[in-house]
Amino acid sequence: SPRFLALCPTSVPSSSSSSSDEEEQRLRAELRERFLRTLLLMTGKRVRFDMHEHVRVHARFGASDIDVLNLQVSDLETPLGVQREALLRCQDVIACSFEV
């Protein structure tokens, strides 16, 4: 899949896994698990989205797809009013901030 190709550079040998591969897998898994836990923590929270073109909006975070391309949010406060349900493109977003 494209996702796999993007994640695994061709320089990585495709056959037997050496100990350095295992170390890389362990680090990747730890980083990924922590990120997924971050998304779980963000679920249901009021989040500030800093977007390109100096756009700043607030919304309640619902979920993200696993490739982190789209963010599903509710009660999005746009400059033109509240949109009850919305999808934000991650490409439009620079940062998401929330309090725990």
């Binding site: 997924l36 979920a63 797809d65 789209n70 599903q72 746009t78 009850r84 349900e85 934000l88 493109r89």
Partner: peptide, 24 residues
């Protein structure tokens, strides 16, 4: 689990892209 939540929410709530035209 994450993807299931995303798909289910999208089915149920039918969210529309905001903004309509990508910023970036």
């Amino acid at each position: 689990a994450m993807q299931l939540t995303f798909d289910r929410n999208c089915d149920k709530k039918q969210p529309k892209y905001w903004p309509v035209i990508p910023l970036n």
